[in-house]
Write a protein that binds this DNA or RNA. Structure first.
Length: 302
RNA sequence: GGGGAGAUACCAAAGUGGCCAACUGGGGCAGACUGUAACUCUGCUGGCGUACGCCUUCGUAGGUUCGAAUCCUGCUCUCCCCA
């Protein structure tokens, strides 16, 4: 079975979308999007998914096929992709996966451990505990329930502590006992292609894209979602800043500047994430020929 | 022309004789991160050095002082008020 998943990854606004479509056209295949926000149908402007014309040029999966009201996570993405891939591989020997959500990409490429899905009530209770009693109370509890995880977590990062507690409380077993960190074997090969630009160039593109989003109606989109602002899917750059503007906490131009800054920071975090993956071969997005060459020359391991 | 205020690191802005390489915020840089991940969290941000440290800074040129971003004088520039 000589199937290949070609992964195109890189920071936001680097030019993955267009490159991915061109490659899909040349390779005559389809695209699996690995983007934790473009997957939501309500986020049409702010998450910069491929536009209508682009969607016509190549078949995309996981673009706008979930609602912000649905619970979704990296593990579910892994399962969804893994159940779709066998079908696709009957039609194509090479399939593209394009996206910038590091954890989603890793979930597909390496797999993530099987951990039960947290019950909302438990999450809510712990959130409230954090709000009212502070992080120290969470730490104390975690130290009791999962001393192993306690040793390695970032004790200043409430979300990580919360995660450990949620699972430990819900299952009665320490969170760390679920973490095997073993890489799953996949029955297809993976070629990781990173796409990035000079930092200034990338930041220029981000700044310009935010202005474009505003012209394309980001405000209207955000206003329509305002009542759902507490949903995780809307804890997203481009929306949360506008919500704050709607609340009167800042001016519109301040909000827009913040969207730009937060997008730049997001891009940097993506870059940092990708940098530790030594399997990635990096290119400028315009080096399409070189990229095709790399794909063409890919040798399947025996 | 007269009077007043001010010039601090990339920006903004504290500091008003030693505790100052200089608060704080922004911006930037670097990093962590196995499930809410476009999240959440951390460090750095004058130069060199792993570090003790050394060197060059607070408009500019001098001066006072054991010691100055802080006091004095000249100069340059900016802003405000009156003409």
């Amino acid at each position: 079975m000589k199937n290949l998943l070609i992964v195109i990854l890189g920071p936001t606004a680097s030019g993955k979308t267009e490159l991915g479509i061109r490659l899909a056209e040349k390779l005559n295949t389809e695209i699996i999007s690995a983007d934790s926000r473009q997957i939501y149908t309500e986020l049409k402007v702010g998450s910069a998914p491929p536009d209508e014309d682009q969607l016509k040029r190549a078949v995309h999966h996981f673009i706008g096929n979930k609602s912000v009201h649905e619970y979704f996570n990296a593990s579910m993405f892994e399962m969804d992709v893994m159940s779709l891939l066998p079908n696709l591989f009957t039609k194509y020997k090479k399939i593209l996966m394009v996206g910038g959500s590091g954890m989603y990409l890793d979930a597909v490429c390496s797999g993530i451990d099987d951990i039960p899905t947290v019950e909302p009530e438990i999450r809510k209770k712990l959130q409230e505990q954090y709000q009212s009693e502070g992080i120290e109370s969470l730490r104390i509890q975690l130290k009791m329930l999962d001393p192993i995880y306690y040793e390695t977590v970032d004790l200043r990062n409430q979300n990580r502590i919360l995660k450990g507690l949620e699972i430990s409380i819900m299952t009665g077993k320490p969170y760390s006992s679920f973490l095997t960190r073993t890489k799953k074997k996949r029955d297809f090969s993976i070629l990781k292609i990173g796409v990035n630009r000079d930092r200034n160039e990338l930041y220029d593109r981000i700044n310009r894209r935010v202005d474009q989003m505003v012209e394309l109606g980001l405000l209207e989109e955000a206003r329509n979602l305002y009542s759902n602002r507490e949903l995780n899917a809307l804890n997203t750059v481009g929306y949360k800043e506008l919500f704050s503007y709607f609340d009167g906490n800042q001016t519109l131009s301040e909000a827009i500047e913040l969207i730009k800054r937060n997008t730049r920071r997001f891009a940097k975090r993506q870059i940092t994430w990708f940098q530790r993956d030594t399997e990635i071969t990096w290119f400028h997005p315009e080096e399409e020929e070189k990229i095709l060459e790399l794909i063409q020359n890919f040798k399947f391991p025996e």
